[in-house]
Design a protein around this nucleic acid. Structure first.
Lengths: 153, 153
DNA sequence: TATTGTTATACTCTATAACTATA
DNA sequence: TATAGTTATAGAGTATAACAATA
């Protein structure tokens, strides 16, 4: 019955959705989606990782990884290389174009960050970031890995 | 090329998804989903509103509202009443059971809030909440209305 | 003719499970 | 027999547009 004002959890959910949507709109202009950005980031951080590893670390279904990598490969952003010891695995690496595009994504991300936080003064941003990092650590959220909105097991 | 650490926007997106997922798991035990909770909340805040109004305020498709209200009506949580002046509109109100269930949802929400922020001291929570409210206002997010994750036009 | 709510349909998206090739 | 990747398929979910009743 109490007309409750939204708490921290709801505000996070609201603002998080807003941030994700706006970021999605920005990377769309680069022909990407947020999940594809996550894939590029992960391959950049761990060049040569297999599709299984990628699926495991990002929480994606293997069949979905195939579709993503197909897409990125056809666009010349990623290469698949058969393993020499185990010829079943596909090792993933970024092409020069992929690295270039990821750099653009990072720039876009920086602009997004700045625009989204525009209302906050520098010291407020630092405060907020510290609090959010604290909270994220307490929930054991891997830095840079998005929990996604449906593929939680 | 820079190995950037996640910024505020990404942390918000990460934590927001986590908060939403955990809240969804809690209300699932009450037989509800987050969107259904939003519908119940809105009807409680504006008893007698029409389905069109509900769709407009929550950003839902009219056909989706029909499905939601069908569901809630069949469970005896909401009633439809034809308008007397304009017999096309359906006025929505909560039943006693609906109000009761919403009260439970609010309790669940309070427990969720507390659990989610467990790592933060009371003064940190107050700080964080103030910063988030500031940010939410700057993005013109209506208090209590979730922007959702797909139905942005 | 326009609007409210409803229904039907076409479309996309996701998950599951078969399938192949290697091991 | 088990595993990495791939393909195919069935199911769920979504948006679009047709529809009936009322204005």
């Amino acid at each position: 019955m109490a007309a409750e004002s939204p708490g921290i959890a709801f505000l996070l959910s609201q603002l998080g959705a807003q941030a994700a949507t706006q970021f999605g709109a920005r990377v769309e202009e680069l022909g990407l989606t947020p999940p594809l950005v996550g894939v590029l980031r992960m391959i950049s951080a761990q060049p040569g990782l297999s599709q299984q590893q990628l699926a495991g670390e990002l929480g994606l279904l293997p069949s979905k990884v195939v579709a993503f990598v197909d897409d990125l490969e056809h666009r010349g952003l990623v290469t698949r290389t058969r393993g020499t010891r185990d010829r079943r695995v596909q090792h993933l690496t970024l092409t020069a174009g992929g690295t270039e595009l990821l750099d653009e994504v990072i720039e876009v991300g920086a602009r997004h960050e700045d625009a989204f936080c525009q209302a906050l003064a520098p010291d407020e941003r630092a405060q907020l970031k510290a609090l959010l990092e604290h909270l994220a650590r307490s929930h054991e959220l891997a830095p840079g890995v998005h929990p996604g909105y449906r593929w939680i097991r």
